[in-house]
């Protein structure tokens, strides 16, 4: 089972997310540490209106469907590393 763990990271490509720091997120793949590199899949998504429908701050990403606000490359990596450590993969 553990072999098939894949973290699907969806980056919002909306205007607001882009100007609020999302522009750097497509580079995530290049910054992934070796131990999780093969387990992460980076994708784009169209704006799902989290910026107008929640009070959270952009940029937004979804990691296996879990919403993360004010995302950064570091924050995403930490999140995935935590999941790995605590075995809370969803």
């Amino acid at each position: 089972m553990t072999e098939e763990k894949i973290y699907k990271v969806q980056i919002c490509t909306g205007t607001l997310c882009h100007v609020m720091g999302g522009a750097e997120l497509p580079a995530l793949e290049d910054h992934l540490p070796e131990e999780i590199k093969s387990k992460v899949k980076v994708k784009g998504m169209v704006c799902a209106n989290y910026c107008t429908e929640t009070n959270l701050k952009p940029p937004f990403v979804l990691i296996n469907g879990e919403l993360m606000s004010e995302a950064s490359i570091d924050k995403i990596i930490h999140y995935i590393q935590n999941c790995e450590k605590n075995d809370t993969f969803k």
């Binding site: 980056i11 490509t13 909306g14 205007t15 882009h18 999302g22 522009a23 497509p26 980076v42 994708k43 784009g44 998504m45 169209v46 704006c47």
Partner: peptide, 30 residues
Amino acid sequence: GTTAQIVSRELDREIEVDIFSGDGDLPPVS
């Protein structure tokens, strides 16, 4: 983005984002 969503919704066609097609300054194309 919103316009694309309207089109996608009304015509019931998927939007496929190519995350690596941006040029660093601009968001990618779909």
